[in-house]
Each structure stands twice: as structure tokens, then as C-alpha cells.
Write a protein that binds this DNA or RNA. Structure first.
Length: 145
DNA sequence: GCCAACGTTGGC
DNA sequence: GCCAACGTTGGC
């Protein structure tokens, strides 16, 4: 068993905001149509934590979600794309903006900055912890996998 | 709303 | 298999 990994996934708030995930309790992360993003989805393990980022509007990390089901066929297409299921874990008390991420030298190597158009990217455990810290978010025991 | 970045498609 | 055209994402 490899160590749990952490990720960042983008959603446009006008399409599927964090509040909707909280309201739904669980959702399938569909619509990914990029090979690299798809491969990242397929690399997710159950229990992996995912930073939920609002693109276009807000441009900030707003919460932490958790993978509740690993990759399976995207039901919205016959083609070879995948979805995972995620559930909300906790909202960040202080959302972490893209500007704040860019301004922080310890986050300069983040994949989301280097590969800005990729909707699902890996996050190192250091980066993950740092963003939670910036977001004034303490992971409680129930979050740990 | 514009435009840069960049992944994907399709002609050759 | 190369590369130009095209489409989409996402920041500004």
C-alpha cells in the first residue's frame, strides 16, 4: 500500500461549486477530457485528499474533498474517460487564493502553477500541508486515512 | 471579453 | 510522423 497522495482539482463555481458538493454529500467528478488529467484520476486511491479549487471565479482553494470511489468509466460518454467519486471533508476557514499561492515561494513548484490548464494535478504532501495552514485549516482525526 | 498557453486533430 | 490549425481552459 503506497502512502495516500494528495491532489488538486478545479471546478468552475458556475458549473459545480464547493457548496454544491457539500449539499450533495458526494459527487462523481466527471467531464475530464484530458489524458493527463484522466491518468491522475486513475492514480487516485480511496481516501486520497483533494484540494477543491474554484477556477475562473474566485480562483482560490475553498475546501478539501476525499476520494470515496476510485476511477471508473465516465457514465456521460462511451469513450475511454474516467471519473472518481468525491465527498466533502472540510471547507477552508480562509480560502487560499491563486495570488497567495503565487506569492509564496514554497509553493513555486506546484504543478497547478506549472501546468495551469490541467484540471486535475498532483500536490505534494508539503504543498498540501502548507495550503491547509494558509487556509487556517486543521485536519481533524476523522480526515486522516 | 480578450488572449496566451497548450493539448488535440487532421492533412499531407 | 510532422506540424499547422483549431478548440478549450483559465488568468487577467
Amino acid at each position: 500500500m503506497t502512502a495516500a497522495r494528495t491532489w488538486l482539482a478545479k471546478s468552475e463555481p458556475s458549473k459545480y461549486p464547493w457548496t454544491q458538493l457539500v449539499a450533495d454529500g458526494r459527487t462523481s467528478w466527471d467531464g475530464v477530457r484530458n489524458f493527463e488529467a484522466r491518468n491522475n484520476l486513475r492514480a487516485m486511491a480511496k481516501g486520497d485528499l483533494v484540494l477543491f479549487y474554484h477556477s475562473n471565479e474566485g480562483k482560490e482553494v475553498v475546501g478539501v474533498a476525499r476520494v470515496s470511489r476510485t476511477a471508473y468509466q465516465d457514465p456521460t460518454t462511451d469513450e475511454d474517460w474516467s471519473v472518481v467519486d468525491v465527498e466533502p471533508v472540510v471547507a477552508l476557514p480562509k480560502p487560499v487564493t491563486l495570488a497567495a499561492i503565487k506569492a509564496d515561494s514554497t509553493l513555486a513548484e506546484m504543478a497547478m502553477l506549472k501546468r495551469s490548464r490541467l484540471s486535475v494535478v498532483p500536490v505534494t504532501s508539503e504543498e498540501f500541508a502548507h495550503i491547509l495552514h494558509m487556509g487556517a485549516c486543521k485536519l481533524s482525526r476523522r480526515v486522516r486515512t
